[in-house]
């Protein structure tokens, strides 16, 4: 699997789409976590959330701010990342090139998951780093004292964010494997992350109790619950403490394993055409 991981590393590092997705995630995170709220705070724009507390943007809230987007918009980016890492071979017809070199299908898939794990962690750490810079800048601009989260909180936050990011990435990978392609997998992944989840939470759940109960077992609401317990702003889309952090962590871990296992099973069983 080490050889597959090294091969996947070249592909991921030199692929412009990897960097583009990371950059989009970082830029959106900066804009909607820091720049827009700060502009509202400074300009007193009169918008519905313009009274957001300055304290929400300071370094003490770095953990919650950095992982708040993962239930929805950052999750969508991770789905695309997962589709690209796992499913790129379908688009370019490279499965045959890879597999005739001799690695087992499971070794190749393991290498892909490992690279996906490293990539999602890198994107997440980048988000934390940029958030740290932005929050310190805001603190300096507003002459506020800088208090950082404790190391344990940081590790917990990164760990939780990584779990959510990997779960979404594995979901993207499963879509790519199941649909044997990239385009439809990306499309369906985005529909789920950006549309279906919101429709369930915003329209169906308030009307139907069984939908509200079912939500507690879905990946998005569990991601939202986990980041909510770690300090993500409650006004962020998808952030809502429907379940406790323990259940959320378990459900997300089960989804991650299940997505990976089903993908592996399909890859192992299917012909490479």
């Amino acid at each position: 699997m080490w050889g597959s991981f090294r091969a996947e590393t070249i592909k991921a590092v030199k692929r412009p789409a990897t960097w583009l997705l990371a950059a989009i995630g970082w830029i959106l995170s900066l804009i909607f976590t820091y720049l827009v709220p700060y502009a509202g705070y400074v300009g007193d724009t009169g918008g519905p959330t313009s009274d957001r507390l300055l304290s929400d943007m300071l370094p003490a809230n770095l953990v919650g701010n950095s992982i708040a987007g993962l239930p929805v918009f950052y999750g969508a980016i991770m789905i695309i990342l997962g589709v690209l890492v796992v499913g790129g071979e379908y688009g370019w017809g490279t499965w045959k090139t890879v597999l005739v070199q001799g690695p087992s299908r499971m070794a190749v898939f393991g290498g892909k998951l490992a690279v996906l794990a490293v990539t999602t962690l890198g994107v997440l750490l980048g988000t934390f780093a940029l958030g740290a810079v932005a929050s310190v800048a805001i603190a300096a601009a507003e002459s506020q004292p800088v208090h950082w989260p404790g190391p344990a909180d940081l590790v917990t936050g990164v760990g939780a964010g990584w779990l959510i990011a990997m779960m979404w990435g594995a979901f993207g990978g499963l879509l790519a494997v199941a649909l044997r392609g990239v385009a439809l997998a990306v499309g369906l992944g985005l529909v789920w992350a950006l549309a279906v989840q919101n429709l369930l939470a915003g329209i169906a759940a308030p009307l139907l109790d069984w939908v509200a109960q079912m939500q507690k077992g879905l990946p998005g609401p569990n991601a939202g619950s986990l980041v909510a317990t770690l300090g993500a702003p409650a006004d962020t889309p998808g952030v809502d403490a429907l379940v406790g952090s323990g259940q959320a962590t378990l459900v997300l871990a089960v989804y991650l394993v299940a997505f990976a296992a089903v993908s592996a099973g399909l890859l192992r069983r299917r012909d490479v055409l």
Binding site: I10, K11, K14, P16, W92, T94, V100, Q101
Partner: peptide, 29 residues
């Protein structure tokens, strides 16, 4: 100990020819 080219070449368009061979070499060990 088998080399194969099946139904046309499948490689990564954003990588150079040399990098594509590096990828292949890493898979094959």
């Amino acid at each position: 100990s088998v080399g194969a080219l099946i139904e046309g070449p499948g490689f990564y368009p954003y990588l150079s020819g040399r990098d594509n061979l590096r990828v292949v070499a890493r898979y094959s060990g």
